[in-house]
Design a binder for these strands. Structure first.
Lengths: 207, 207
DNA sequence: AAATAGTTGATAATTTATTCACAAACTAAC
DNA sequence: GTTAGTTTGTGAATAAATTATCAACTATTT
């Protein structure tokens, strides 16, 4: 995979592009120019072109980009075709909701198995085996790099164990602060934090 | 409020600081130095000090920061004490989960009311009135700036109406691309996008 | 009370990210 | 074909964000 130091800021925009491209594709648009796309996503055309250029020469001069091809490339690059293996830690309400949507809208990967301390939640749910969390080290499948964390007890201790098992990316649904060593990435999915950012940002807009 | 052009990157870190500070406070730490905090959040001490300096002179040379005071300031600045009024659009599974947790862990504000097209979902749920979405314009309380969007139909049209009603910030739980004019901020809360970012980021780490 | 050790906050230097500007490459019309 | 009109992709310029440096200050020790 061509992946030569893509800026962090660019990484954050890729999912935005992908969503927008899908919307365009769904409404019958088969080719798009950076300027058109710019109107859709509120990002400068030149930024878009530079962002895209990290993934190869995707466009054609005088023509633009082929939407389908672009989506395909993004799918590949953003892991959709990788069939990224995921594990889920915590099989409570949120965990079960995620299992239910396992084969997501547009598949990122697949939840291979889940872990929970509560015996009532163990067994098979929505086709996914849920193991006892204490068996994490033995039951975790090979090659899993990303864990989705929806647990609510002993969070830091669990994270430490996950990292020992080779996890390098965590999607964090907890509302707590988690400490990880360098080399491990965390993405918080958190309403409260999102609202906080918005409150501050919109205050800035007003004043 | 002192709010002179806080960098976007800084805004994204504020919720991280707040969580970490709460954790510290809960474990009995009453004062902290930028270097200590750095170890906890994996952000350079000097970046931390700069980030904090936008909110005033919060620290003391040769001493550090008072954790409680810091939390208080953050609460104020990040809207917690503002009692920010929120509305919820969409009262399905996700919407109801949010209503249930309305008075969040650490209160951001309050969901004043919700809207949904489905009559079955209207009425009062968890103490929050749920109105028909078609009455949005008449039922939306004064002074609401932020909407939480968990609807799944006619998303773009609904967003347009929200903006007409004065909404300037949207917490977006949908998986679709939404188009908004400049001056309106969106924060996507989206597992799939989060995983996508992680997949790419962790690929970068490995290769 | 003076000296020392240690920390913030401001400024300067550096790094990272965005935007400009234009050559090269393509399409479409003739 | 050839030419005019577009649009990409990228080197260079600009802007933004991060990190380093240091003066000013605080607490503590002597």
């Amino acid at each position: 995979m061509a992946n030569k130091n893509v800026p962090k800021a660019t990484l954050q925009r890729y999912p935005v592009y992908l969503k927008a491209l899908r919307k365009l594709s769904a409404s019958g648009v088969s080719r798009v120019m950076s300027k058109e796309l710019s109107n859709v996503v509120n990002i400068e055309p030149t930024t878009i072109r530079r962002d895209f250029s990290f993934l190869g020469n995707l466009g054609k001069q005088g023509y633009g980009y082929d939407v389908k091809k672009l989506i395909e490339i993004f799918n590949q690059q953003l892991g959709m075709d990788f069939d990224e293996k995921l594990i889920l830690v915590g099989a409570g309400n949120m965990g079960r909701a995620l299992m239910k949507y396992n084969r997501w809208d547009y598949v990122v990967g697949e939840i291979k198995c889940a872990f929970d301390i509560n015996p009532d939640r163990q067994g098979v749910r929505f086709g996914i085996p849920v193991y006892d969390l204490k068996d994490l080290e033995t039951k975790i499948p090979n090659g899993v790099r990303i864990a989705i964390l929806t647990a609510s007890n002993d969070i830091q201790a669990t994270v430490d164990r996950l990292i020992d098992c080779g996890i390098v990316g965590i999607v964090d649904f907890t509302h707590e602060h988690i400490q990880v060593p360098k080399g491990v990435a965390i993405k918080a999915v958190d309403v409260v934090s999102s609202i906080q950012e918005l409150v501050f940002e919109t205050n800035s807009i007003i004043e």
